[in-house]
Write a protein that binds this DNA or RNA. Structure first.
Lengths: 196, 196
DNA sequence: CACCATCGCGGAGGCTCCTCCGCTACGATA
DNA sequence: TATCGTAGCGGAGGAGCCTCCGCGATGGTG
């Protein structure tokens, strides 16, 4: 996982190993019981003290993303790939669909983002990655003339915050589709009443 | 507060008094420290056991709305009043603005609704009240031809879920305005691409 | 070699959550 | 009046959160 600097201080070495053990344990526990799994249980499973867990991961959210960072990055990269394959407007929609699916299928993500949203979300690495991806899509859309220019990635993140709440519902596909349809209609250039 | 049935069983009488004491204490504590205030502290302040609190209010959310129910109802009533004063499209927007302001100014509300959203939100009385109000506005809007007909109140609730997260940000007015602008643009009749 | 500064570790401790259960007090019944 | 059933009360208890601090290992210094 982590890069091993050839001749590290043994202390740092141990610390790194502990970190890795924690991430592994967290991944398992989050998988098993959603991401409100007990942090003490994770520490126990990793065989380290609870203090060690909190030193490495000062908040639950940080741990969640440490465990799932890779997947978030892939979602970030996806934006670029979609932009190469299709026109920006469709890429934007497709990306948001993927994000929604992600939030449903990988329950941790919805949970995590809704935790992240509580504090100052911009503190969250994952949040930043997603906003960056979204931003690329919006800029490309604006450049192509399909998407209005007066809306920022932050605004759209806020507008799709509802996705994190769709979770347990029965008709999540319908809910998600309608929510994104609504949003896309608002996002299209010319949607807004002609500005003065 | 509660209606006093003339000759109640003394036991029920005590229970009612306890309930009222709890609501009063909760109101104070929520005011003081946001609605993640300690329930044990509330019980202490009310002078009852923690068990009594949980018997009357099985979840934090229930207590929050027991304490603030009146205000939520007023917000519900506001929908009808606005519809009498202005055309539906503006009433809808105005109502959502009020809701947003509410969510910011009365921090408990944003908190509470985001708690409510986690479980099955339709279990929450407050949620139902708000959805009902929204529904009235949408129906009126559709009848007047200003608002599209294929969007339900639940969908809109989901779309404005972001409002609960605006909370701590600096530029909440701007964020809120942009979010609602976006939504209104999507909601206007004719916004959607012509359907097949 | 003896001493010292530093850093990461573990876990105790204070607090909250929420459940569960024994107790009491009061009305009902004989 | 003596006994019983029951509704509502209080709070102990087990679990989790998070902080804080004493400890031991390690590498540097005289």
């Amino acid at each position: 996982m982590s890069v091993v600097p050839a001749q590290a201080h043994p202390r740092e070495e141990t610390a790194r190993r502990n970190r890795d053990k924690l991430v592994a344990a967290a991944l398992e526990e989050f998988e098993r019981s959603g991401c409100q799994a007990s942090l003490e249980a994770i520490a126990r499973k990793a065989g380290v003290g609870i203090g060690t867990l909190y030193r490495h991961f000062p908040s639950r959210e940080v741990l969640i993303f440490a465990a799932h960072g890779r997947e978030v990055e892939q979602l970030g990269d996806l934006a670029g790939e979609l932009l190469e394959e299709m026109e920006p407007e469709h890429a934007l929609r497709e990306w948001m669909d993927q994000l929604a699916t992600f939030a449903i299928k990988k329950r941790w993500m919805g949970d995590a983002l809704s935790v992240a949203a509580k504090s100052v979300p911009s503190d969250s690495t994952a949040y930043r990655i997603l906003v960056a991806a979204l931003s690329r899509l919006l800029v490309a859309g604006a450049a192509s003339g399909a998407i209005r220019e007066d809306v920022g990635a932050d605004d759209v993140m806020l507008a799709i915050a509802g996705l994190w709440h769709v979770n347990a519902r029965n008709d999540w596909q319908g809910q998600t589709r309608r929510l994104l349809d609504l949003l896309m209609d608002g996002l299209r250039a010319g949607a807004s009443a002609p500005r003065a």
